[in-house]
Nucleic acid binder design. Structure first.
Lengths: 132, 132, 132, 132
DNA sequence: GTGGTCTAGACCACC
DNA sequence: GTGGTCTAGACCACG
């Protein structure tokens, strides 16, 4: 895994970790069943406390993206090919997307420019199995 | 202005205020030159601390969306028709968008579903002046 | 609040705290909108660490029973009169109830004895508004 | 025996094992005197550690549901028809039931809804011998 | 060796 | 004042 976190960022480390894992799942670097490093191992790798890693992993577990075993550590529970999302997720996500899209619009990006950026970002994510 | 903040939400009030103003600019409710209520007036309206409003306005000022004059109060500095955004903004915004889009992808939304949601949200922002 | 936790119990302190709060909501001691002590205050009251209280409160927030404000502390988000439960909750709860009821049955309690105990326990919980 | 354990669940395997045995006794699949597989056989069947099975059996022994003989293996010590439960068990069980029922009540299930669920679950446990 | 719990103390963000 | 984050280290539960 090629994940990096910035301890000096204003966004909490555990959330950076969550974001990077989510992105790795979206890009296909991590798939359903992929194992993640142990909390202690990842902590020493990043030079951060293992509790911080723990909290990041816990966030991912709450979002049903990770399954945590005492025995075998953390395992990716789902990826883009694991079925449709929960309706509540879509609703909640749309709310956050609205704010983000409003910001781009207010700063002068046109509808098509915004969609182009989104399209390009989505293209960097791996192809879905059903597409190929 | 028909702006509402939820003091019980988990998202900080000053950020809710910022988000609502950004959305108002995106939807055309606020335009370049539109005056905003004074910090004190808004604070008493919402029953929140005057410093909180100040912080929200300051965020908008940092993002070059607001101009704050000691004399004439806060004025919207730009809207979607005020020209293209700063390149740094686009870059920073794309980063945040990537994380958000990754989240949708990881949870099982297809590329087209994500783009559809974005398209629909953008349509609610109303037509730009040069479009009409 | 008359809440007690046993630091020597095998069940984690933060979960005991969660259980006591849930029971207080069920019995009507706590209602929608009731404030809870600050994490630090409760921690010193119980002679435990504030992080432990924090974790207990966080559990309750995850279950949508608590709302946590930076300003005003923790507030009860819902009680028995705040509307019907989420379907997923009912399903998950039924699973746990099955195991518990099986235990009673295996130990020799008859169907009616079990239901009697449940009925009596439920009667100690406060009357619902719509019942009165 | 048709018992299944999920090694990926968040609930410990030894407790899953205990729960499934308790449920099997409640539903009548296992009765007083029924032999259980040897710990080693069960361990290889499930692909889990032999100590884990041991711990699950030990839990059942502590709850007076199992007798473990070095010679004849594990045998079900009692079922629903083996007489009334120990008073201490009833007391301890009522405590756990209170927490579970409180949870349902706090989430908005009415007294009758809760009792209905319990009644339906108990009906799936089959008739007792003295009832038939 | 894995994660989970609890303690302790520091510093920051919010209001 | 409130809660949130991060660090640090100890001990226990699980397999």
């Amino acid at each position: 895994m090629i994940i990096e976190v910035d301890p000096n960022s204003e966004v909490p480390i555990y959330q950076q970790l969550r974001d990077r894992v989510v992105e790795a799942i979206a890009t296909g670097v991590l798939r359903e069943g992929s194992p993640l490093p142990s909390t202690r191992a990842l902590a020493t790798d990043f030079g951060i406390n293992f509790h911080t890693v723990n909290k990041g992993y816990d966030l991912l577990r709450q979002q049903r993206l990770l399954r945590i075993n005492r025995k075998s550590g953390a395992v990716v529970l789902r990826d883009g090919n694991s079925g449709p999302p929960a309706p509540e997720f879509v609703e909640e996500w749309t709310g956050r997307a609205t704010t983000l899209l409003a910001e781009a619009t207010a700063h002068g990006l046109s509808r098509e420019e915004v969609l182009d950026i989104c399209r390009k970002v989505l293209e960097t994510f791996g192809e879905r199995q059903e597409d190929s």
